[in-house]
Design a protein around this nucleic acid. Structure first.
Lengths: 230, 230
DNA sequence: ATAATGATTTTTGTATACAAAATTCAATGA
DNA sequence: TCATTGAATTTTGTATACAAAAATCATTAT
């Protein structure tokens, strides 16, 4: 993928965003070593701001350092992934609850529009598009909740959830047909200003997803190898 | 406070820990500019690993950069502090719930010992000691829950809660007499392996604390000035 | 062919260098 | 006295330099 060279100040913030995107869309894959010199040259910057950016990502757990060996895209075990879903469950529950307090009519429209293309068909087959919608939904909701800290934590964990499950059906743990109604339930609870129902619906959604993941871990050990794409 | 100079590799991790401590115990105060050259010399390192460390802290929101103006210890508004308590409420609720699943007898003893000095007296007057116990309790619990990601998020937010409320009664929002029973309730729920009760008790505890904070914001606007100690 | 050894190359961790921006401070004028 | 201007100083953002560690590769011995 062609990227424009970075210009102007705060090279590290820009490098940060680019590398993050590269991890999210798997140009950099879990476990892979990040070649500093090469990447710096590719981005048209020196190692200094690149390392800076990698430190940010290290703190976010998207990247890890092995001393004297460099930076690597973080690998997650399935168990860790489950514990991330656990965190998402309570935090996105909170996100939905807050959103139900403050949502506006136009935000509601935005939310509904995300899943509109899928409500008309009886069997959703485009996993890729649905996965993108799913992600958009969770991110927009965090934004609507207008909680800066919440959004920033969630953004990280959502990227992990997605990037690291990618080899498994475009990052989806359950099929669109299984989850579409849950998504709609969450949106409708929020749009009818029912914080309690919104929180419960969201927690149910993520809890069920995590449970499916756990089941798969137990029944199909081969998934383990699959997850990080090696 | 005298600090030993840093030696050996990974200077940035060590600088990170030291600066974090300095913020926690208010050697560096919210709003203060962090003098790079001076601090680097004091620690016996160059600016490179120091900046590295500051990037970590920036990502954790303990520190912020103003472009071309340098790093500053982050200021939090009371509203942001409330939103941090909101996050702590759900995450520490989760922490208590997980702890109730996995706790051992010796960990129980450890937890109980923290508040033991205060259960014997009818009126707790040593706020400083109680505040330290409070912090220890929340940190130990996060550790017991043995959730790496959870602990790391919580550690950050607990530091913020404490450091930024410090000028208000040693960082305590409510008096020890008001909260001691809640702490004991949480511990006992966990130690009797009751995840549901443990989560509820923890959420009640933090929710009540946050509510008190909100009340104070509304009734006493002067607190606003007080919080960041300026 | 495989393993062990050592020389060569690459990469890391940290310091230093330096231009551009911000700040400080002194001199000047209102 | 106070505000304004502009030079001198400090600090930032980034590049580069460099020793030490790690990885690679070729050579020799088994």
């Amino acid at each position: 993928m062609k990227r424009p060279l970075i210009t102007s100040t705060n090279l590290d913030q820009k490098a940060y965003q680019i590398i993050k995107d590269m991890i999210e869309n798997r140009e950099l894959k879990p476990g892979e070593k990040i070649p500093q010199e090469k990447l710096a040259t590719d981005l048209g910057i020196s190692r200094t701001p690149l390392i800076s950016a990698l430190k940010f990502l290290e703190q976010e757990k998207l990247v890890e350092t092995k001393p004297r060996r460099g930076f690597f895209v973080r690998l997650f075990s399935l168990e860790e992934l489950v514990s991330i879903f656990e965190i998402r469950e309570v935090l996105e529950g909170l996100s939905a609850r807050r959103a139900a307090h403050s949502i506006t009519a136009s935000q509601c429209t935005q939310l509904r529009k995300i899943f509109e293309p899928f409500t008309k068909v009886s069997n959703i087959t485009d996993y890729q598009a649905y996965s993108a919608a799913d992600r958009k939904f969770h991110n927009l909701l965090a934004e609507i909740s207008s909680r800066e800290f919440l959004s920033s934590i969630l953004q990280t964990y959502n990227i992990i959830s997605l990037a690291y499950l990618y080899p498994t059906r475009e990052g989806l743990i359950r099929t669109p047909n299984e989850t579409i109604q849950e998504h709609i339930d969450i949106i409708e609870a929020i749009c009818s200003y029912d914080p309690k129902a919104a929180e419960l619906a969201m927690r149910f959604h993520l809890q069920t997803t995590a449970a499916t993941l756990i089941e798969e871990i137990q029944s199909d050990k081969s998934l383990r190898k699959e997850v990080n794409n090696r």
